[in-house]
Design a protein around this nucleic acid. Structure first.
Lengths: 108, 108
DNA sequence: TCTATTGTTCGATTATATTCGAACAATAGA
DNA sequence: TCTATTGTTCGAATATAATCGAACAATAGA
């Protein structure tokens, strides 16, 4: 596997976004990615869950268009697709991020 | 049954809101309630689904704190709890409503 | 009191999601 | 080439959700 495929944002429905964010683990991942403000590997999220479970959640976040994953060596670097999501669903992700960490500036 | 019980908004988690909005039928209900700008009975949503299914979806919307239901005679009048939700999760519901019907003013 | 109206609850079925161990794939570095 | 690292995929078990007919509850009005 050279590169992971991501959906184009016009293939993504609002319900997909909502669904992806309805799980506490995934919401936590999204919140941490936002507050970190940098790409993070799957392993950096220390959520006491086996790799396969984490991988599952990332898969759903990717399918919802929320996360894009860049492969670098053996690591997978994850980033939020804030700008694109914002363009398609203005305010939705940003407001969620602000609720998750009120102090942080979520503008990218 | 005299009155339906609703959760206090501080009992509601963000994941509950997201979950409630991750279903197309429920998102449709929420969108129509918003654009109608008035209380609507369950029967007014003509979504080609049996009463029991509709009732199920309203139950989840209520549990998420999104909808409050006022009983008047034999009818149940449903309204969005926009202000309260907005206070607890600023911007979240409003942005969703704006995505659902961009032209409408969703400020209550 | 009887009936129609409006929704809810119950119970069963079917469909989707979550979870996680084990096996696999790709790469880096020795 | 061998091994460690990082994550994905597979498969099976378990849990949660959606769906909807049928029975029930509350009320209004005849």
């Amino acid at each position: 596997m050279r590169q992971i495929k991501h959906p184009s944002l016009d293939q993504v429905e609002l319900t997909d976004i909502m669904y992806a964010l309805s799980d506490p683990t995934r919401l936590e991942i999204v919140g941490r990615l936002a507050s970190a403000g940098r790409k993070m590997t799957c392993g950096e999220f220390d959520l006491n869950r086996p790799k396969s479970s984490m991988s599952h959640h990332f898969k759903i976040l990717r399918a919802a268009g929320l996360v894009e994953t860049l492969i670098e060596g053996t690591e997978h670097l994850n980033a939020l697709r804030v700008k694109e999501i914002e363009q398609k669903f203005p305010g939705v992700l940003q407001s969620v991020l602000r609720v998750l960490s009120p102090a942080a500036d979520t503008t990218v």
